[in-house]
């Protein structure tokens, strides 16, 4: 199954055009991998350097919300932006902790 074909299937499932059977029939890990690859492809367009991290963060959300993001470009961009902010904030926290430990 190539990426474009899967993407179309995901869009159809999210919009209700196609029964969920197509995606649900796959094993959970395979589902996650396929969604992850599609998501990674889209995240890489916005944040190529941190695509693996952001993709991992988004994949931890509920699957139906992730599917919703795939078909809603506006919400998807907001989510990626939010993930970057969470990541930057976490990084700053780590820097403070490291500095504290060093002293």
């Amino acid at each position: 199954m190539n990426r474009l074909c899967f993407f179309n299937k995901v869009v159809k499932v999210a919009r209700g055009d196609s029964p969920p059977f197509d995606l649900a029939s796959l094993p959970p890990k395979e589902q996650r991998d396929l969604i992850g690859e599609t998501l990674f492809f889209m995240v890489e367009e916005l944040e190529p350097q941190f695509a693996p991290k952001i993709t991992g963060m988004i994949l931890e959300l509920d699957q139906d919300k992730v599917l919703h993001l795939l078909v809603t470009p506006k919400a998807f961009k907001e989510m990626v932006k939010e993930a970057m902010e969470v990541l930057a904030h976490s990084f700053l926290q780590q820097m403070k902790i490291a500095r504290g430990k060093r002293c």
């Binding site: 990674f40 991290k53 993709t55 991992g56 963060m57 931890e60 959300l61 989510m79 969470v86 976490s90």
Partner: peptide
């Protein structure tokens, strides 16, 4: 949705990225 964003989440590497060591090092 926002509450579940976890900065400690494990990175996701697509299958074509996992086979590229150079890319992994860069990341």
């Amino acid at each position: 949705m926002f509450k579940k964003l976890n900065p400690e989440a494990k990175e996701f590497f697509p299958s074509y990225k996992r086979n590229t060591n150079q890319s992994d090092d860069f990341v």
